[in-house]
Write a protein that binds this DNA or RNA. Structure first.
Length: 271
DNA sequence: ATGGGCACCTGGCTGC
DNA sequence: TGCAGCCAGGTGCCCA
């Protein structure tokens, strides 16, 4: 699902709805998420006041006066804002009801998503402490990516999807960023030139920013907090376009599997 | 350390 | 119509 642009779009939808509100009740229909919800999950959250909604990598961090609710959307998760009491549908697993009369509802058909309540500093949580720099952060730059690619034989596409190198780049935006940087996804990371590395840093930033602007990419399950889709799908150059004409040079887009994930690229534009 | 592969889960689509 | 097989925005963990 959701890569950084979809998670950031969700964050922006939740922030004005949740900040300053008190959590009046938590209704759980399914505890078996990627990690089962603990027995004290509801009690830990009820009565807490939300201080803000942040994001780290593809995680949402709902800050409260007593700890942080950590949410991951997995492959198929979404969070929607509804009136409290709206009838539940398939795969609606958790409702967070607020004192405004609204509810934030977690839906996730595949249940690869997760929720945790963290009492201490979230950055020390095991799921967050080893994460690489944010793509929009000053510490993600050409010097950094240059040093992290040297000596690496993995394909560059797999490297930029590695959350120990840079966070937020998933299967769609990895292919799209490499197209925009004119680099073949199959190149060994360590063989990229300095100029190519610099191009790639810029391309990752630009494609993620452009996707955030239009609410992310909806392929199947993802929706924004108001239920509307993201519109970046119309701007994809290569993802899921196997055999179609490259939008730049008309060469048929190619497909291959890397690390058990589909990769798409233009064999003419990308070298 | 690095690289490769599997597992978790449900639904939608294809082809026989 | 039924069903097997394959594919899908992620990532933690295990093995060599």
């Amino acid at each position: 699902m959701p890569e950084l642009p979809e998670v950031e779009t969700t964050r922006r939808g939740l922030e004005p709805v949740m900040t300053g509100r008190k959590i009046t009740s938590i209704r759980v229909a399914e505890r078996r998420l990627r990690w089962p919800l603990p027995a004290d999950f509801e009690a830990a959250l009820v009565g807490r006041r939300v201080t803000g909604v942040g994001r780290r990598a593809k995680y949402l961090l709902v800050g409260t006066d007593a700890g942080t609710l950590l949410v991951h959307l997995g492959m198929s998760g979404s969070l929607r804002v509804l009136a409290a009491g709206t009838a539940r549908e398939a795969h609606d697993h958790v409702d967070i009801e607020l004192d405004s009369g609204r509810a934030v509802r977690f839906n996730d058909p595949r249940r690869f998503g997760s929720m945790h309540f963290i009492r201490g500093a979230p950055e020390h949580h095991r799921l967050l402490r080893s994460l690489a720099p944010e793509p929009f952060g000053a510490d993600f730059n050409a010097d950094y990516l240059w040093s992290r690619t040297r000596g690496r034989r993995v394909a560059i596409k797999l490297l930029i999807m590695n959350a120990a190198i840079v966070v937020g780049v998933g299967n769609i935006y990895a292919s799209e960023a490499l197209f925009r940087a004119r680099i073949s996804p199959r190149r060994a990371a360590g063989r990229l030139s300095r100029a190519e590395v610099a191009r790639l840093v810029g391309a990752i930033r630009r494609v993620l920013a452009a996707a955030i602007k239009v609410g992310g990419t909806t392929l199947r399950d993802y929706v924004r907090t108001d239920g509307s889709p993201g519109y970046f799908r119309q701007k994809l150059f290569v993802y899921e376009r196997t055999g179609a004409a490259c939008r730049v040079c008309r060469t048929p887009i190619r497909h291959a599997v890397q690390g058990q994930r589909s990769t798409y690229w233009c064999p003419s534009c990308q070298r």
